Simulated scan of single mutants.
Amino acid sequence: MSLNTNNSSVEHSLPLEGEDERKINIAHYTVLLLIVSVIGLISNWVATGTDPLSALPGMAILYVVSIAGLCLARFVPFYLPSIAWISLLAILITIPGIPGADWVVAKVEALNFLALATPALAYGGLALTKGEFDIARKSGWKIVIVAICVMLGTYLGSAIVAEIALRISG
Protein backbone atom coordinates (compact mmCIF):
# COMPACT_ATOMS: atom_id res chain seq x y z
CA MET A 1 0.00 0.00 0.00
CA SER A 2 1.55 3.28 -1.03
CA LEU A 3 0.40 6.69 0.03
CA ASN A 4 0.80 9.64 -2.25
CA THR A 5 2.41 12.38 -0.19
CA ASN A 6 2.64 14.84 -3.06
CA ASN A 7 -0.12 17.33 -2.36
CA SER A 8 1.15 19.96 -4.76
CA SER A 9 -1.28 18.96 -7.50
CA VAL A 10 -4.32 18.94 -5.22
CA GLU A 11 -5.75 22.10 -3.65
CA HIS A 12 -7.87 21.74 -0.54
CA SER A 13 -10.40 24.31 0.55
CA LEU A 14 -10.12 23.16 4.16
CA PRO A 15 -7.07 21.77 5.95
CA LEU A 16 -7.12 17.98 6.02
CA GLU A 17 -6.29 15.97 9.10
CA GLY A 18 -2.56 16.10 9.59
CA GLU A 19 -2.14 19.02 7.16
CA ASP A 20 -0.22 21.99 8.52
CA GLU A 21 -2.65 24.84 9.28
CA ARG A 22 0.19 27.32 8.90
CA LYS A 23 -0.17 27.01 5.13
CA ILE A 24 -3.81 28.09 4.93
CA ASN A 25 -4.89 31.00 2.77
CA ILE A 26 -6.04 33.69 5.22
CA ALA A 27 -7.74 35.79 2.51
CA HIS A 28 -9.83 32.78 1.44
CA TYR A 29 -10.94 32.16 5.02
CA THR A 30 -11.81 35.83 5.56
CA VAL A 31 -14.33 35.61 2.73
CA LEU A 32 -15.71 32.28 3.97
CA LEU A 33 -16.05 33.60 7.52
CA LEU A 34 -17.80 36.71 6.21
CA ILE A 35 -20.37 34.51 4.44
CA VAL A 36 -20.80 32.41 7.60
CA SER A 37 -21.25 35.60 9.65
CA VAL A 38 -24.05 36.82 7.38
CA ILE A 39 -25.76 33.42 7.58
CA GLY A 40 -25.30 33.53 11.36
CA LEU A 41 -26.93 36.95 11.60
CA ILE A 42 -29.89 35.73 9.55
CA SER A 43 -30.31 32.55 11.60
CA ASN A 44 -30.01 34.56 14.83
CA TRP A 45 -32.73 36.90 13.54
CA VAL A 46 -35.04 34.03 12.61
CA ALA A 47 -34.45 32.11 15.85
CA THR A 48 -34.55 34.94 18.38
CA GLY A 49 -36.14 37.89 16.61
CA THR A 50 -33.05 39.98 17.38
CA ASP A 51 -32.61 42.67 14.75
CA PRO A 52 -29.49 41.93 12.63
CA LEU A 53 -28.26 45.50 13.09
CA SER A 54 -28.30 45.15 16.87
CA ALA A 55 -26.53 41.77 16.64
CA LEU A 56 -23.97 43.04 14.10
CA PRO A 57 -21.42 44.35 16.64
CA GLY A 58 -21.36 40.96 18.41
CA MET A 59 -20.96 39.12 15.12
CA ALA A 60 -18.21 41.54 14.08
CA ILE A 61 -16.36 40.74 17.31
CA LEU A 62 -16.64 37.00 16.62
CA TYR A 63 -15.45 37.58 13.06
CA VAL A 64 -12.42 39.64 14.10
CA VAL A 65 -11.47 37.16 16.82
CA SER A 66 -11.72 34.28 14.32
CA ILE A 67 -9.53 36.04 11.76
CA ALA A 68 -7.01 37.04 14.44
CA GLY A 69 -6.88 33.42 15.65
CA LEU A 70 -6.29 32.17 12.11
CA CYS A 71 -3.48 34.72 11.69
CA LEU A 72 -1.88 33.59 14.94
CA ALA A 73 -2.13 29.93 13.87
CA ARG A 74 -0.48 30.84 10.58
CA PHE A 75 2.33 33.14 11.71
CA VAL A 76 3.30 32.26 15.31
CA PRO A 77 6.51 30.20 15.24
CA PHE A 78 5.11 27.35 17.38
CA TYR A 79 2.11 25.26 16.43
CA LEU A 80 -1.30 25.42 18.06
CA PRO A 81 -4.47 24.59 16.14
CA SER A 82 -6.43 27.63 14.98
CA ILE A 83 -9.40 26.68 17.17
CA ALA A 84 -7.11 26.88 20.21
CA TRP A 85 -5.91 30.38 19.22
CA ILE A 86 -9.46 31.56 18.55
CA SER A 87 -10.68 30.19 21.89
CA LEU A 88 -7.73 31.71 23.73
CA LEU A 89 -8.36 35.14 22.20
CA ALA A 90 -12.08 34.95 22.97
CA ILE A 91 -11.33 34.04 26.58
CA LEU A 92 -8.78 36.84 26.92
CA ILE A 93 -11.07 39.58 25.63
CA THR A 94 -13.89 38.54 27.96
CA ILE A 95 -11.96 38.18 31.22
CA PRO A 96 -13.54 40.46 33.83
CA GLY A 97 -11.22 43.36 34.58
CA ILE A 98 -9.73 43.48 31.08
CA PRO A 99 -10.52 46.89 29.57
CA GLY A 100 -13.48 46.56 27.21
CA ALA A 101 -14.46 43.06 28.39
CA ASP A 102 -17.85 44.22 29.67
CA TRP A 103 -18.60 45.90 26.33
CA VAL A 104 -17.56 42.76 24.38
CA VAL A 105 -19.75 40.53 26.54
CA ALA A 106 -22.71 42.91 26.20
CA LYS A 107 -22.41 42.97 22.40
CA VAL A 108 -21.96 39.20 22.01
CA GLU A 109 -24.94 38.52 24.30
CA ALA A 110 -27.20 39.60 21.41
CA LEU A 111 -26.19 36.36 19.65
CA ASN A 112 -27.76 33.00 20.42
CA PHE A 113 -25.27 30.14 20.28
CA LEU A 114 -27.80 27.55 19.15
CA ALA A 115 -28.98 29.83 16.35
CA LEU A 116 -25.37 30.18 15.16
CA ALA A 117 -24.57 26.48 15.52
CA THR A 118 -27.62 25.15 13.68
CA PRO A 119 -26.55 26.15 10.13
CA ALA A 120 -23.01 24.91 10.77
CA LEU A 121 -24.26 21.55 12.04
CA ALA A 122 -26.69 21.26 9.14
CA TYR A 123 -23.87 21.88 6.68
CA GLY A 124 -21.69 19.35 8.47
CA GLY A 125 -24.45 16.77 8.22
CA LEU A 126 -25.01 17.44 4.52
CA ALA A 127 -21.39 17.74 3.44
CA LEU A 128 -20.73 14.29 2.08
CA THR A 129 -17.57 13.55 0.15
CA LYS A 130 -17.03 11.25 -2.80
CA GLY A 131 -15.27 8.82 -0.47
CA GLU A 132 -18.31 8.57 1.77
CA PHE A 133 -20.53 7.85 -1.24
CA ASP A 134 -18.08 5.15 -2.37
CA ILE A 135 -18.23 3.53 1.08
CA ALA A 136 -22.04 3.61 0.98
CA ARG A 137 -22.06 2.00 -2.50
CA LYS A 138 -19.68 -0.76 -1.40
CA SER A 139 -21.62 -1.41 1.82
CA GLY A 140 -24.96 -1.71 0.05
CA TRP A 141 -28.27 -2.09 1.80
CA LYS A 142 -26.72 -3.31 5.09
CA ILE A 143 -25.43 0.14 5.94
CA VAL A 144 -28.96 1.55 5.73
CA ILE A 145 -30.13 -0.90 8.40
CA VAL A 146 -27.13 -0.07 10.61
CA ALA A 147 -27.72 3.68 10.16
CA ILE A 148 -31.41 3.34 11.09
CA CYS A 149 -30.51 1.31 14.18
CA VAL A 150 -27.87 3.85 15.23
CA MET A 151 -30.24 6.80 14.77
CA LEU A 152 -33.08 5.03 16.58
CA GLY A 153 -30.78 4.01 19.42
CA THR A 154 -29.41 7.52 19.75
CA TYR A 155 -32.90 9.02 19.78
CA LEU A 156 -34.26 6.52 22.31
CA GLY A 157 -31.17 6.84 24.49
CA SER A 158 -31.45 10.63 24.51
CA ALA A 159 -35.17 10.44 25.28
CA ILE A 160 -34.55 8.05 28.20
CA VAL A 161 -31.77 10.22 29.65
CA ALA A 162 -33.96 13.33 29.29
CA GLU A 163 -36.92 11.59 30.93
CA ILE A 164 -34.77 10.47 33.88
CA ALA A 165 -33.28 13.95 34.27
CA LEU A 166 -36.73 15.57 34.17
CA ARG A 167 -38.14 13.16 36.75
CA ILE A 168 -35.18 13.71 39.09
CA SER A 169 -35.35 17.49 38.84
CA GLY A 170 -39.15 17.67 38.99
Rank of each mutant, 00 (worst) to 15 (best):
S9W: 13
S82Y: 13
V46R: 08
K130G: 02
L156H: 01
I83N: 11
A68E: 05
D51A: 13
I93Y: 12
Y155H: 07
N25E: 06
Y123E: 10
Y63I: 01
S169Y: 00
G40T: 07
D102T: 04
G69Q: 08
A122S: 10
V146E: 08
R167N: 00
L116E: 12
V46D: 07
I35D: 09
Y123S: 07
H12V: 01
A120I: 15
H12L: 07
I39Y: 10
V161K: 06
L166K: 01
I83G: 10
L156Q: 04
A84T: 15
K138A: 09
T5C: 06
G124R: 06
Y123V: 10
I39Q: 06
G125H: 08
Y29Q: 14
F75G: 03
E19Y: 09
T94E: 10
L41C: 09
D51S: 13
T94S: 14
P99T: 08
T50P: 02
L62R: 01
L70Y: 05
L16T: 00
I83E: 12
A115I: 05
A106F: 04
I148D: 01
L56T: 08
I93C: 11
L152S: 14
A106L: 07
T118S: 13
F133P: 03
N4P: 02
T154I: 05
L116M: 13
G153H: 13
Y79W: 04
A165P: 00
V10R: 14
I35C: 13
E19P: 02
I42Y: 15
P119E: 09
G153Y: 13
D102M: 01
N7F: 14
I39V: 15
V105C: 06
I98G: 04
Y29F: 15
I148S: 01
L80I: 03
D134C: 00
T94A: 13
V65K: 12
L53Q: 13
G69R: 02
S37L: 09
S158E: 09
G157N: 11
K142D: 00
C149A: 14
I26R: 13
V108G: 07
I98S: 05
K23Y: 06
T5N: 14
V31W: 11
L89T: 07
G40N: 11
P52S: 07
P52Y: 06
I98K: 11
L111K: 00
L166D: 01
L70N: 03
T129L: 03
I168E: 06
Y79H: 09
E163W: 11
T154Q: 11
I24A: 03
V76E: 00
N4R: 12
T129N: 08
F113I: 11
R137L: 08
P96V: 07
I98M: 14
T50R: 09
G125C: 05
G58K: 03
Y155S: 05
G97E: 07
I168N: 08
M1Y: 12
L14Q: 11
V76F: 06
A162K: 11
W141Q: 00
M59S: 14
L56A: 15
G40L: 11
I26D: 02
V144H: 04
L41E: 07
P15M: 07
P96M: 10
L166G: 00
I145C: 01
L34E: 02
K142Q: 02
Y79E: 04
A165R: 02
A101S: 15
A127Y: 12
Y63Q: 02
L166N: 04
M59E: 15
G170A: 02
A110I: 03
V64F: 10
F133T: 06
W45Q: 12
D51C: 05
L41Q: 08
K107Q: 15
A147W: 04
N25G: 07
P52W: 09
L156G: 01
